[in-house]
Design a protein around this nucleic acid. Sequence first.
DNA 1: ATGCTTGCAAACGGTTTGCACGTGT
DNA 2: ACACGTGCAAACCGTTTGCAAGCAT
Lengths: 139, 139
Amino acid sequence: MNDKTNKNLKEAGLKATLPRIKILEILQRTSGTDDHFTAEDIYKELIINNYDVGLATVYRVLTQFENAGIVVKHQFDVNKSVYELNDPQHHDHMVCVDTGEITEFNDDAIKNKQREIAAEHGYELLDQSLVLYVKKIKK
Amino acid sequence: MNDKTNKNLKEAGLKATLPRIKILEILQRTSGTDDHFTAEDIYKELIINNYDVGLATVYRVLTQFENAGIVVKHQFDVNKSVYELNDPQHHDHMVCVDTGEITEFNDDAIKNKQREIAAEHGYELLDQSLVLYVKKIKK
DNA sequence: ATGCTTGCAAACGGTTTGCACGTGT
DNA sequence: ACACGTGCAAACCGTTTGCAAGCAT
């Protein structure tokens, strides 16, 4: 419930309500530690901490946050979306097929090559989704 | 209902039934023309051609084809999967956000860079999903 | 003949929505 | 005060599944 959180919400044109504040806090709590949440994850976290927020509200808030550019929605797995705070520095993800662990990475060479390929086909690159499915190398 | 179609099914350990044969034919009909189908697309196509196949069967058959490596399933849009014949030469896709048009491409430089990045994190690259969201460049 | 296949309808699971009540500004 | 926000339950929609009947081999 710090000032920064409230300010973020105000800037997005969203009233600083308890569900929004708490959801934002949960997202921020793990910022930087490569954590990605489903709506359900956040919902459960709220319930555990005794905030009776409806699952529908979590979805609504996350959608609002997404529109406001506060969070980014990913779909690593079919029929399950995950959200993370919007990192101003865009990055991609690799998902371990064994553990589900998510690692973020960023590579300019790939980005540039993508723009190049799009241009070759007469297109402008607006957005992109890259997910690597990997497994740990055994020693 | 040609021999090749029947052979493909047999090899996959699937009986050559009418739904399977017709679905495979629909998929092959547009092979090479960058066409990607939803289960619904195929279902409608069957109905139009007077084959009373259930939507559930289309899903079952597509899943069997996927397991058999005959088709590949993609998810360009959240909550809608598309299928295409499995191109032995793996390729990626760019989707025009305006028209929905899908263009296939293939780039070894990107593939190699991906393997490299995975390795840097102690991972082996098993699979990958790359989709470019693009729009036509105006003249 | 027998076991794989199918159509139908009902179930599923994540997500969205209508509505009446509640709350921030 | 008043518009915006919320909880609840029902609706949604693509996909899956149980079951009894139907085919390929």
